[in-house]
Simulated assay, not measured.
Amino acid sequence: MESGMFEDEFQNDGSFLHDEFEDGENFEDTENETSDATDDPKRQGWLVQIRNLNGEVTERRMWAKQVPKLPVTEQIIVPFKGNQPVGTDIDGLLGQYLGRLASNHKLLPISFKKWPEVVKTYKDWVWEKHIKWEPIHEAAARTSFMMDMGKKWRENRIRLFHTKFDQTLSREENIRNPPLSIPPTEWAAFIDYRLEEDTTKKSKQNAANRAKLTINHTGGSKKLKRRSEEIMSQIGKPVSRGTLYIETHKRRDGSYINEEARQVCEKIAEIESQGTVPVEVAIDDSLGQVKGAEHYGRVRAI
């Protein structure tokens, strides 16, 4: 993996992304690569900057599946701000690309019970061969990307179980029928983990908790950070949590997802219209005033 530095409009320097997949290595997409790139059907991929060895920077539209096909003389510029990559298009490309890595069972086996238990050797290999960052950003980038991949790895395993495990068959019958991309021993270990009493209990509890939700968001898989940047580029000023909450609880036609969401959003909008609440995250911002205190370890609309 090559890497380098590039001066850009953000407070930190940019870093570069390149890939070294072996020929013939397959991936399962974890996201529809055309789902949230844009509402414009003519658009062909994410618009990102690419720099060659001569230092020349060009713009190009790309999908995640095209990253492995980049020549070694080209690198995708990934701007950083603080400890996070920034830019709506590059963030979209990164999300899809990390999802492809996370769902590659050769790189990150599904037989481990939890992401922290995935052997460091596997994570190091993915980092060194498929992501490798400029040293000045390496610690921040690795932390950010590994957290993102861990989330996608967990989501992929959940989806894999619900789509590939046949509830009408016995454990032994399911084990004898692994997906083509997964070694039988890994599939067996994964099935046994999913059928453990503790795992089954947690799964049922999570399903019950989701069933209690009365207001669902319409943000899809798009990160709130990216949605916030899109809104900010449209209105030309920082976006509050309240504004972001309103925008992610509407349908495409502008209507609210349900009556409860409408009532909450209208209260937020009324407070926002007064112009006296902070744009920064605060317990007394518009969302905090309407929705109340946060649950421990969570911050809404962030």
Rank of each mutant, 00 (worst) to 15 (best):
E173P: 04
S203I: 07
N206C: 06
G275T: 12
F190D: 03
S286Q: 07
N174E: 02
A139V: 08
D19V: 01
A140N: 11
E247D: 13
T248L: 08
K237I: 05
F165C: 12
E294F: 10
D285P: 09
D39K: 13
V118G: 00
R100A: 14
E260F: 02
R227K: 07
A141Y: 07
A261L: 00
G95W: 02
I231S: 04
R157G: 01
V281A: 13
T58S: 11
G92T: 01
N26R: 13
H162K: 13
L94C: 04
D89K: 11
G242S: 07
D148H: 12
Y97G: 07
K291V: 01
T185N: 11
F145C: 03
V78R: 05
N52P: 05
R61C: 15
T58K: 14
R61A: 15
L17H: 08
R176A: 15
T143W: 09
Q75Y: 06
A211S: 14
N32V: 03
F165I: 15
D166H: 01
G219C: 12
R176H: 03
K42S: 15
Y245A: 14
K42T: 11
D124N: 15
L98I: 10
A211H: 08
K267A: 13
G45N: 08
E31A: 12
D284I: 06
E266L: 14
D284G: 05
P238W: 09
F112C: 09
G288R: 10
Q75S: 15
L47W: 10
T88P: 06
E31W: 10
S15Y: 06
I110K: 05
E134N: 15
